[in-house]
């Protein structure tokens, strides 16, 4: 099934660590504006797959084309591609030596040539959007995990990306903070952002995803819209996984 105009085109991708296959012959096409949630047991290759989409992870075979850029062509300017692909990490990875505002403005200023005033105005709008406008001038250590992750989302959005990748964005959070981060992500989804999300949050997947992808052993085992995926999974491995977590 190859849709008309995918913004992310992962074709026949494999990745081997020494002799272990992290990814085997994976195909994934994502339409602009589509929300894809990838789930699966740990070690299934879901994070690895996500990280190949901005080339944080190299592949050993296949091809990945993002917004027309062939990521593994020797001529591609990977930094240009990455400016269009925001990424949010499990462990936030905010820059601890900069204030929240500094975290949000450094990339637009240095990479897009924005003036400080422009960048700061935009940063404040983004902080408003993620619900922490009052934290602009504090350092990340002063923030809760949930706040840090929302800053991380805002930092990625500051580059006005076309695609957002989320790598288990709530896995490092205390339970009471998961909601605030998922709310921000859901709002982003409603605005029409193209999103690929690796998560264990089934409620989020059910509500926000257009399509759910289940991975196991480095392969895509099953993909389906959430309604079908959660009620009538076809593959026995999917059924078993869902039984265990639901």
């Amino acid at each position: 099934m190859s849709p008309a105009n995918p913004i992310i085109r992962v074709e026949n991708v494999s990745k081997h660590f020494d002799t272990v296959a992290a990814l085997s012959e994976v195909d994934l096409f994502v339409e602009p504006g589509e929300k894809v949630v990838i789930i699966g047991p740990s070690g299934s290759g879901k994070s690895t797959l996500l990280r190949t989409i901005n080339r944080l992870e190299n592949i050993t075979a296949g091809s990945i084309v993002v917004d027309g850029f062939d990521l593994y062509s020797p001529h591609v300017d990977i930094n240009k591609v990455r400016m269009e692909v925001g990424m949010v990490f499990q462990s936030f990875n905010l820059f601890p030596h900069m204030t929240v505002l500094g975290n949000l403005t450094i990339a637009p200023i240095k990479l897009k040539g924005m003036t400080r005033a422009e960048a700061e105005a935009m940063a404040r709008r983004l902080l408003e959007k993620v619900g922490i406008p009052d934290k602009a001038d504090v350092f990340p250590v002063k923030l809760s995990g949930g706040q840090q992750q929302r800053v991380a989302i805002a930092r990625a959005l500051a580059m006005s990306p076309k695609i957002m990748l989320f790598d288990e964005p709530t896995s490092a959070l205390d339970p009471e903070m998961i909601g605030e981060v998922l709310d921000v992500m859901a709002a982003l989804a409603r605005e029409g952002m193209t999103m690929v999300v690796v998560t264990h949050e089934m409620g989020f997947a059910r509500e926000v995803a257009d399509r759910i992808i289940f991975m196991d052993g480095g392969r895509i085992v099953e993909e389906a819209p959430p309604a079908k995926f959660f009620t009538a999974p076809e593959h026995p491995r999917t059924q078993k996984f869902l039984e265990q977590i639901l």
């Binding site: 944080l56 400016m83 990424m87 990339a107 990479l111 990625a156 580059m159």
Partner: peptide
């Protein structure tokens, strides 16, 4: 993670 965060922004 710091390197990855910076690289993912396009640095």
């Amino acid at each position: 993670g710091q390197t990855e965060a910076a690289r993912s922004l396009g640095f």
